[in-house]
Write a protein that binds this DNA or RNA. Structure first.
Lengths: 341, 341
DNA sequence: CTGAAAGCGCTAACAC
DNA sequence: GTGTTAGCGCTTTCAG
């Protein structure tokens, strides 16, 4: 074992394309072609080059390649949280789809109210992503301006209410609220309440709900907006606070299934009959809502499908296709009725 | 408004450092210094350059900078999932800490059994991250070899049982299982069972538990290993399957709080008294375990603290400090006793 | 404190 | 098919 060990470099300088080229007896450009456009290289050469790559343990420097080709093969994604199962599913599906197409995803988690969105965008855009996925758009005008000037495909998810930068994929949150109100009305609930965390989309849903209740001639017992995030304990506290106003019969729309679960849990503890005295509808269709007892009626969102669609939209544009109408898409949502209504 | 609009470039080529330099009447190098080492530039020059940057909407190309400086100011992180609250917390805390220090995190979600770990590592290392966070190490030898040859700081989290690549931060999963077994024993449970998903760490915990039960002279009623991931419905099904063997009294250790919640829910439906006939301990200390009713006894993990510690370890090394003993750290865990035991 | 020259590792564009 | 040349946009290094 005193001979030089075979196999990759022992703690020497990192292998680069010229090393591989030298080892294979070809020009660097040929190595590059083997990696990027294999069909333009003869099989024998390819084999020799591949062997050299293998032997040296060469890992191409994508940074250098990106600088040269002006393509980073990287997309940035910004979501407020990954604790929310819908976003978790979305991110996972988006990442998978992009990776399959050869893109790496840089994920940023920005919270619901990022004070320094400009700083975040600068850090992201500075890496010259080929495309961008962002959530909603409660961003500062300066930050949005940066996005526009980046001249890359951008897809906004989660909210279709605002003026889009480029592509858009989501649903009107107010509309969700309205549909839940209509659903409650159809079930002959005329006393309604709503409990949400104060993030702008949830508040939109609440507003849509309140309007829907009014339009249907119902009574709004209470509109509770609590600090984000939307948690189980917020739901439990919410119900305790609502208790005095509950009356004979009341229907409550919650900002998330977590909250709804908290409400249902606390209701059992407090001896409030669900759904007879209190009907509950959640939002998000988390596993919890389906599997807890009683199972919770909720609004289903299809995070996975949204993530996949977002990837498809971006990939189409990255492949050079022109913008089209379908680039402004509503994501379907549906009310899944279960035991709490 | 027929004059040329003020403000940043209207759809022209992207602004680069030479544009800013020209606009400010300085050399490109001076612009670079304003951005990277502001204290080495006179205040007046700085002001002029900053104004030009602002006016042109210049966003430095970090790709080019990285190539030149051989520092990407980027770290890669690999986790199996973000659906698990512990990982979600960890990732969030890690990302925050790194971002504060000026590093961007590239997150990869690899699932529990990635067939193409080499491909993933190549994609990541090709971007020349300055450091790496990885979860556990059920990776192929070739893939691990790539990590070693990257010659960057690596911190492995989540499992301290294997031989480390560099730094390590986690806890012995087998030890967790053993402690839960001891905990059950202390509560005079001599009939025990365990239910986990088949991911390698969860299986380690189960094994530790089984050994612990044996050591304490207890009886292992059942060891159930179900397909990953660990879900509520897996817990519900698990209990149904366990039902015939439950006997008078039994203590069950679950692979996650989700499973434990499923078990407790199904137990209520089936009329199994918790904790009198069936004691349950979860794993992970999710909000759900604390807030459901009955609240679930669990093992608490401190994902947030782990993420922060991992960041600290890496940042120390990135700042040039030498490896030290503290680089192999146990993350504390604790059993939180609640109503299900 | 500021500038000029050289080059990071790769690929586009054009030869051969 | 393969090689050569010339950068990509920035920072290092060295001079002033």
């Amino acid at each position: 074992m005193t001979e030089m060990a075979r196999g990759p470099s022992n703690r020497s300088a990192p292998i680069k394309i010229t090393d591989v080229a030298a080892a294979a007896g070809v020009a660097p450009m040929t190595v590059s072609r083997v990696l990027n456009t294999p069909d333009r290289v003869s099989p024998e050469t390819t084999a020799r080059v591949r062997a050299a790559i293998e032997r040296l343990g060469y890992v191409p420097n994508l940074i250098a390649g990106g600088l040269s080709s002006r393509k980073s093969r990287m997309v940035a994604a910004i979501v407020p949280t990954i604790a929310h199962p819908m976003f978790a599913g979305l991110v996972q599906a988006f990442t998978d789809s992009m990776r399959q197409a050869g893109y790496q995803v840089m994920l940023s988690i920005c919270g619901y109210h990022d004070p320094d969105d400009e700083g975040l965008f600068r850090a992201l855009l500075g890496r010259r992503p080929d495309a961008l996925l962002i959530t909603g758009s409660s961003y500062s005008p300066a930050a949005l301006q940066m996005l526009i000037e980046a001249h890359i495909p951008v897809v906004e998810i989660w909210d279709v209410s605002s003026r889009p930068i480029d592509m858009m994929l989501g649903f009107g949150h107010a509309q969700v609220g309205a549909e839940v109100a209509a659903f409650f009305h159809a079930k002959e609930h005329d006393r309604c309440a709503v409990l949400v965390a104060d993030d702008s989309r949830a508040v939109s849903r609440a507003r849509g709900f309140v309007e829907g209740v009014a339009k249907a001639g119902g009574t709004l017992v209470r509109e509770m907006i609590v600090p984000a995030p939307s948690t189980i304990s917020a739901g439990r506290e919410g119900l305790r606070s609502l208790l005095p106003d509950l009356g004979e019969r009341c229907a409550l729309f919650c900002g998330s299934d977590l909250m709804a679960f908290g409400v249902v849990t606390e209701a059992r503890i407090q001896g409030v009959a669900v759904p007879d005295r209190l009907a509950v509808c959640g939002f998000g269709n988390f596993e919890l809502a389906a599997q807890c007892d009683p199972a919770i009626t909720t609004v289903s969102l299809e995070g996975v499908e949204t993530g996949r669609s977002a990837a498809t939209m971006l990939l189409r544009r990255l492949a050079g296709e022109e913008p089209r109408d379908a680039d402004r898409m509503q994501v379907p949502f549906s009310i899944i009725e279960r035991a709490t209504t």
